[in-house]
Nucleic acid binder design. Structure first.
Length: 412
RNA sequence: GCCCGGAUGGGGUAGUGGCUAUCCUCUGGGACUGUGGAUCCCAGGAGCCGGGUUCGAAUCCCGGUCCGGGCCCCA
């Protein structure tokens, strides 16, 4: 036997049961996003490498699947979708009336060590609200993310922060230093941060950063510390709107986010039961359009880690009604009956035997179906078919029309 | 990128340096050519890959691949 060809590392095959569940969850996400007026967009699976290196943040750049095509162009499989969607916006939608509400569901690629909830090909569901610079927009996006996770019956915590506070505190430092400080805050390595800032003689700044980062709770906590007035007003307003829509949150100013393009409100959601891969959603306000040659445009968005959500989501798809057309010798007629029923009934699975089994074998094979319709010479002549309820074990004789009526009633 | 643990038919497993690799499930067929899930019978299908030690390796050793767990990072 020749060697079996295996799946590449970090990729997955999905069997029907799992696909069904994934489609069900996807459908729910779409439905909720659409109920907020968001419309689906789709961008290419690969883009110019530059799109992602321009502003994505160090971590992601190292993980990019990059390659040269036959024309020598530097291309990359998309590691995320915010940059592609903003590129699409700049290319095609600049003059459309604002705001634009876009959502996407697509696969992304990152070269990483695979683990539970972390794959080299993974799916993201996300939205981008383009053109609004206001708390109303930010609150809408946060609420939408919250609703989706809530409707999927996931247990999670939502943390809301604002990168403006820390950015402002660090504004007098050079970019390299401030970026290192932000990274240490993001990792929660406060001891290392203390040592680092001590070396630079920034003890005073360190202690105010420490105070800021430790703030966790509802909005009112913020009153007690000395932060930028405009930012405080913004956070208060966003939180107020979130509370109105029943969103449960924690203000957490330590949220920094790995992607460099965030400028304002940021938020993350953590689900229970996923270990180190607990972050199921991340987002915030950013400015990216001008980087891709457009006008400076404020935007807010989030991305949900679809595969992580699937790990903890309890949603079960509704089982379809399954009907077997069992033939007693008359294949031709059985196929005809099956086709007629498929035409008349929607959302019902209708299956015939294609293995040449005898009657008994067919019934045995279809024993976990809901109904069996027996089609043989007698039925072909009279037009009256035996329909057997396989779950209850009862059988009756009906015409095609009556069968259609009966099954339609059961579907409801 | 770092640290650990694994890998035996499609799925789940047993076992051991030595005969034809165990059991369950599964799949196909038969008993049974007009009525299912039971039972019995027959058939099918496996030691991740490469190298080493050995008379002999699925078993021991080394390397690789893949999976899982924990970090890092992130969704």
């Amino acid at each position: 036997m020749p060697n079996k060809i295996e799946r590449p590392r970090g990729t997955r095959d999905f069997l029907p049961d799992e696909m069904e569940k994934r489609r069900e969850v996807e459908k729910l996400m779409r439905l909720i996003a659409e109920s907020y007026g968001y419309k689906e967009v789709c961008t290419p699976t690969f883009e110019h490498l530059e799109l992602f290196t321009l502003k994505s943040g160090e971590g992601i750049i190292e993980e990019i699947y990059a390659f040269k095509d036959k024309g020598g162009r530097d291309l990359a499989l998309r590691p995320e979708l915010t940059a592609p969607v903003m590129r699409l916006y700049v290319n095609e939608c600049k003059v459309m009336p604002k705001p634009l509400r876009f959502y996407y569901f697509a696969n992304c690629f990152r070269y990483e060590r695979p683990q539970r909830g972390r794959y080299r090909e993974f799916w993201q569901f996300g939205v981008e609200l383009i053109g609004s610079d206001r708390a109303e927009g930010e609150a809408e996006v946060i609420t939408l993310a919250y609703r989706i996770l809530e409707k999927l019956k996931i247990k999670f915590n939502l943390h809301i922060g604002h990168v403006g506070i820390l950015r402002k505190m660090l504004k007098d430092l050079d970019e390299k230093t401030s970026s290192k400080i932000l990274r240490l805050i993001d990792k929660g390595e406060m001891e290392e941060l203390k040592r680092f800032m001590n070396e630079l003689g920034l003890n005073e700044l360190y202690s105010s950063i420490k105070d800021t980062v430790n703030i966790k709770g509802k909005v009112d906590f913020l009153e007690s510390i000395d932060i930028d007035k405009d930012v405080l007003e913004r956070i208060k307003k966003v939180c107020e709107l979130c509370e109105v829509s029943g969103v449960d949150y924690i203000v957490d100013l330590s949220i920094v986010r790995g992607l460099d393009y965030y400028t304002g409100i940021v938020f993350e959601a953590y689900a229970e039961g996923l270990g180190a891969q607990k972050q199921v959603c991340g987002g915030g306000s950013y400015r990216l359009a001008h980087v891709f040659g457009g006008e400076d445009t404020p935007s807010t968005g989030f991305a949900i880690g679809f595969d992580r959500v699937m790990e903890v989501c309890k949603i079960e798809p509704k089982k379809k009604l399954r009907v077997a057309i069992v033939n007693a010798g008359s294949y031709l007629h059985a196929f005809k009956v099956a086709e007629k029923l498929r035409e008349k009934l929607s959302n019902v699975e209708i299956v015939t035997d294609v293995m040449g089994r005898n009657l008994k074998k067919q019934l045995s094979h279809f024993s976990d179906f809901d109904f069996a319709i027996i089609v043989g010479k007698k039925e072909e002549e009279t037009g009256i078919y035996s329909i057997k309820d396989l779950k209850r074990g009862v059988q009756e004789k009906l015409s095609i029309e009556d069968i259609v009526n009966k099954l339609s009633r059961v579907v409801k």
